[in-house]
Design a protein around this nucleic acid. Structure first.
Lengths: 188, 188
DNA sequence: AATTCTATCGAACACTTTGTTCTGTAATTA
DNA sequence: TAATTACAGAACAAAGTGTTCGATAGAATT
């Protein structure tokens, strides 16, 4: 990929995430973005068909990366396995979010976070899928597997949102304990 | 309130909900709304400062009503009380959603549902608050009460979304059973 | 080094949307 | 009946959209 393309792409992503922390998605215009990124109008449209595609590509980059990281952790440390797990993949994920490499939490907490949340949750579904025992356990008689997956990843997302709204006063370890308490029975 | 005002207001809400089922919130223009509602441009702005205020007022009406209904049910039938509850307030709420008085489910499932979801969840928080035992139970040692409330209402919302995405193949009774299984321990 | 691609710039463009302001008209209220 | 209030419809400036074009600079190829 051409250096110039990368540079433009980085500038747009940077400008866009900055703007997202300042005002809601709906009121961010292409004009705002190209002003902030300091690129030409035609250049923007050469890269992105529309504003929606921009946020789409941004999500792919951000969440693709964090889920890859979590998957790696699973392969290294094995599946979530109750109390004696060294560091659960969920705790690891929380730590990663807290370190805030790409300001992901900032994006989740911005006004128009629904797009990010959807990506986040879809990514988590993949992760949870790998964490769940193959067959339905005794804990979930007659309950569809995908309901459980949805419940677990949904609970994780809700927890993260709750965490952020409360100024992130808890440690990832605290949250991991909370999370084990409410959904643990379905993971083990 | 003037008849004419009510009529205009109804027409706008109707047009707006119709449009929401056809395309995402972001691409609905004031022009679309006034064309569909067949009102003058100045009339719209006499009622609503902006499009955001319109959706705000619509949410107030819709979710205010369903939560009032659920609260009534609680006062009549008592709190959620495990297996021997006649019809849990959550089951009752699901039935109400299914009957679809004001096409609430249609709004939740539309592309730009995040605004409705937020209202829905906030309303549920109030409801869950009344359902939860006053003190933390043995099931939730050292876990903040508002975490539990958030977890429960979040799980309910996620369940409803899962229900809709799967074409609502389950009955409210099924869902109520699923719901009891995953969050029941914290409600009883 | 010279040449060919290719990304960007910047300006211009027709078009849509926005929110405001105006006048005349019809419905409601006193 | 008279005064008030809500609406329709038109016009308006301002801002945003998405496209096109020729010029310029950087990258790649020979």
């Amino acid at each position: 990929m051409d250096r110039r393309q990368k540079k433009t792409r980085r500038a747009v992503f940077q400008a866009f995430t900055e703007l997202l922390s300042e005002k809601p998605y709906g009121s961010i215009t292409v004009q705002d973005i190209i002003d902030r990124a300091d690129i030409g109008r035609s250049t923007f449209y050469a890269h992105f068909e529309t504003k929606d595609e921009l946020i789409h590509q941004l999500c792919e980059e951000l969440f693709g990366h964090i889920i890859d990281t979590a998957m790696d952790h699973t392969h290294t440390h094995g599946r979530y396995s109750g109390e004696n797990a060294p560091v659960s993949v969920f705790c690891h994920l929380l730590q990663h979010l807290q370190e805030n490499d790409n300001n992901i939490l900032g994006l989740l907490s911005c006004e128009s976070n629904e797009i990010f949340l959807r990506y986040f949750k879809n990514s988590l579904n993949q992760l949870v899928e790998t964490q769940l025992p193959a067959a339905d356990s005794d804990h979930t008689p007659d309950i569809p597997r995908d309901f459980i997956i949805n419940h677990i990843s949904g609970s994780f997302v809700e927890m993260v949102l709750w965490w952020m709204e409360g100024k992130m006063r808890q440690t990832p370890d605290d949250l991991d304990r909370f999370f084990r308490t409410v959904v643990g029975p379905f993971l083990i």
